[in-house]
Design a protein around this nucleic acid. Structure first.
Length: 428
RNA sequence: GGAGAAGUGGCCGAGUGGUCGAAGGCGGUUGACUCGAAAUCAACUGAGGGGUUCUGCUCCUCCGUGAGUUCAAAUCUCACCUUCUCCGCCA
């Protein structure tokens, strides 16, 4: 969501940005917004004048009544009532116009960072950097579910029976690996100065509609029957929601949080739930990071955030690369976004394990997350978020990359304390 | 689940129809005093928006949300939302 003032001062910037994002069909909206805003202000100015007149007359009536000048009071009352209709009509107009402006404003994408590569869709995303040599073992790497099954580590049949497709039972060492990865990720982020947080796993409807669009809400969120509560799709929802309609003291910034939560996603209209696998599922767990900071610091934080994920995966000996999201693939709210992808020795390609986004002030503007500043006036904070790791999916990369020829799984040193000191997991 | 109470500025808290955007206190900023932001004293200190001859002036809106009564609503009426306390139940 952009500042309406930008439409008054620099509409050309908005138009160019639309072209970069291949959303030329929204160009007429810009002129529509400018015109509606003009009408809106005009209505407001006229209504303000009438309200001013009404207020001063009301004060006079008060004084007249107090002094027993009833004729004066009655005369002024008649005057106020005489303009009541006009004012009521104007106020309706004000509301209608303001709502129209807001509605259209929501459709205009955020101004993207100059560094974002121009492209139409995800096929034009650009590889930025590789970390670690992609592994190509001499032996065949099985499908991740098959690897898990050799350890009796997954039971999808039972999960389908109890919960349906898109759920899983993780068992034994695989379940322990899952928890170990999360615990390690938590400590990894704490060591880097982030504050650990376990947030609510359900949030109210008004928070949901604040943090995402209506279609996103329909496609992602599970609603609790009979309650105004939704299961979170990521802890970012509760973590950012925590700041809704607050004015932060400047010295409390930056706020760097790492949060844990289960995540629930309906995945309607997405790519569907994977039949056999834990790549895309209805329920998973995730260690997340979010940052609320001053505008001038957000580009620097963006780099720090995705580097955390890269370093985390590298510490587990998993090769990764970063993929720059191109202009056309970038969600409307985002200024810049980069995916972290892990290497799959089985598929011999990288696949997404995390996504880092800088939302600029767009999210903060929408949610009313401001920073107090007496000299310059209060301003909107910048918000960012990034995945540390989401284990069911990251386990795919973990198992494939650490699989030994004898079928055992090597446990990289940093993870061993969380696995009872084991150096490897073997078939039992 | 049952009963009761309450929602006011960064925080606490007064305010039951007109000069109330709102007493008082805390916190904060600035100044005086001082070796010293320890104490004391003084001034200032909510948010959003419009207009403008623009770093000033001015106007409008906001006291949980929405509707209503009235010339006029923080204050009266109705509905809703939320929170708290006690009892019951339970990890």
């Amino acid at each position: 969501m952009l500042d309406i003032k930008l439409f008054r001062t620099d509409p050309e910037l908005i138009r160019k940005n639309l072209s970069k994002k291949f959303q030329e069909h929204k160009l007429p909206l810009v002129d529509a917004i400018i015109e509606l805003d003009r009408q809106s202000r005009e209505a407001r100015t006229r209504a303000d004048a009438l309200r001013n007149r009404r207020n001063s007359l009301s004060r006079e009536i008060g004084a007249a009544v107090a002094q027993g000048r009833n004729e004066d009071a009655e005369r002024d009352k008649a005057q106020v009532m005489g303009m009541a209709k006009e004012l009521a009509d104007l106020e309706t107009l004000e509301e209608t116009l303001a709502a129209q402006v807001r509605e259209k404003l929501m459709l205009i994408p955020n101004i993207i960072d100059p560094s974002v590569p121009i492209g139409r869709d995800d096929r034009e995303n650009v590889e930025a950097e590789r970390f670690g040599e992609p592994k190509a073992p001499a032996f065949e790497v099985p499908y991740h579910i098959d690897i898990m099954e050799t350890f009796n580590g997954i039971d999808l049949d039972s999960a389908r029976k109890t919960s349906g497709n898109g759920f899983y039972y993780l068992c034994g060492d695989v379940a322990r690996l899952h928890s170990a990865v999360l615990s390690y990720a938590r400590d990894f982020m704490i060591a880097r100065g982030f504050t650990y947080c376990v947030p609510p796993f359900m949030i109210r409807g008004n928070v949901v509609s604040g943090v995402m669009s209506f279609t996103e809400m329909e496609n992602m969120m599970y609603k609790i029957e009979g309650e105004d509560l939704y299961l979170i799709g990521t802890s970012e929802h509760s973590m950012i929601g925590k700041f809704i309609d607050t004015i932060l003291e400047e010295e409390t910034l930056p706020q760097a949080w790492t949060s844990y939560s289960p995540c629930f996603r309906r995945e309607v209209g997405a790519h569907g739930i994977e039949e056999r696998g834990v790549y895309r599922i209805h329920q998973f767990e995730k260690q997340e990071m979010i940052v609320v900071c001053k505008p001038e610091e957000s580009p620097e934080w963006f780099v720090r955030l995705y580097r955390n994920t890269v370093d985390f995966f590298r510490s587990l000996d998993i090769p990764v690369r970063t993929l720059e999201c191109c202009s056309g693939d970038l969600a409307d709210l985002k200024v810049k976004s980069i995916d972290v992808e892990a290497w799959s020795p089985r598929q011999r390609k990288y696949f997404e394990v995390g996504s880092c986004s800088n939302l600029g002030e767009a999210q903060a503007r929408r949610l009313g997350i401001r920073v107090r500043n007496k000299e310059k006036g209060n301003y909107f904070a910048h918000t960012l978020n990034n995945t540390v790791t989401a284990p069911p999916r990251m386990l795919i990369a973990f198992l494939e990359n650490n699989l030994q020829e004898d079928g055992s799984i090597a446990i990289p040193a940093p993870l061993r304390p969380y696995m009872g000191g084991q150096e490897s997991v073997t078939k039992g």
